[in-house]
Design a binder for these strands. Structure first.
Lengths: 171, 171
DNA sequence: GGCGTTATACTGCTCGGACAAGTTATAGGA
DNA sequence: TCCTATAACTTGTCCGAGCAGTATAACGCC
């Protein structure tokens, strides 16, 4: 471990004024991911608050609107989420009147989650929120830059997902 | 609102009808940010768990190791974090024996947070965790790709931070 | 000096997220 | 058939995160 002194590759010969000299910034990319996620989450929270949802809930609703009633385990897999988290998120959405629970007849263990009629009034607003988020994220970039952005993020996701041995998508 | 046509981020000329073809994928970049952050956070959690820290605490410790005793408000600004979160994180770190609190003589409102001697045993491990994270994030990429990755993330951060009007770094 | 404003830190509340353990139902094999 | 293993969900616990409100200290202005 730790054989990589990061010499050679990392420190390019001549960019003396690197903005990140200190040890506290261990990995520049890791920190950047952290900060981007933070900013993104916060903006999402601010926008979603106006529609009465919390970050994370909108993803559940969007999948329900798109695909119709789903079992909890399907939502978990779709969102790559956690069973316990989904249970509580669903409960809150149900309590807020956006979702209904119905026993699954085929499998008495499962419950079907379906969006309520009232929830459909939110759909456009929620989709608009995501549109705004997207605009804030890549606004001002040309086609090429957007493609690069997406490609970089997908690369990161792939490597990180691959690196997580057995968490959710694992064996 | 706004001028937003975004006319299909990358779809060609012919999506005139519907603004959001597949609703559940609203913004590809937004979703990608979400997933990258998730994977990154999860791996960080798994790695940090072995050293007895929770994600977020390592950032506090790294700054303390790097800069020495800091007031809480300095840590908040350094991490761009929240006062309430910092209070509780500090309390947990203190309870875990990694941090000590000392009244600030200059300003009786403030408290100085300093790393304990015991905590220094963690430093190498924590830095190694960040090194591993970095390697998992950009491992296999050449210099140019790493630069692109960093540039893309910094661009996202800048746009998103700029978009958040007044959250923390506000006026 | 006195008074209002800001700064620092803390608490209460709620949320997503992760882990562990437990409950009930299904599936599969002896 | 019975019995064990697996699957779907639930609850408990702890964590970071964000918002709102509060107490105390410092600052500024009159």
């Amino acid at each position: 471990m730790a054989e990589r002194r990061t010499s050679g590759t990392e420190t390019a010969p001549m960019d003396g004024a690197v903005p990140v000299p200190s040890a506290a910034s261990g990995g520049p990319v890791s920190h950047a991911i952290f900060r981007v996620a933070r900013a993104h989450r916060m903006i999402a929270g601010q926008l979603l608050r106006r529609v009465g949802l919390h970050p994370g809930q909108e993803l559940v609703m969007m999948h329900l609107w798109e695909l119709g009633p789903q079992r909890q385990v399907d939502l978990i897999r779709l969102l790559d989420s956690d069973a316990a988290t989904m249970t509580r998120t669903i409960r809150r959405l149900e309590h807020a009147g956006f979702v209904r629970r119905r026993p699954c007849l085929d499998d008495k263990r499962a419950t079907l989650i379906e969006p309520t009629e009232a929830s459909h009034a939110l759909r456009r607003q929620v989709e608009d929120v995501w549109q705004q988020l997207e605009e804030l994220s890549v606004g001002g970039l040309d086609e090429d830059e957007r493609r690069t952005t997406l490609r970089v993020l997908e690369g990161l996701e792939e490597r990180l997902t691959l690196a997580a041995p057995h968490t959710r998508s694992g064996p």
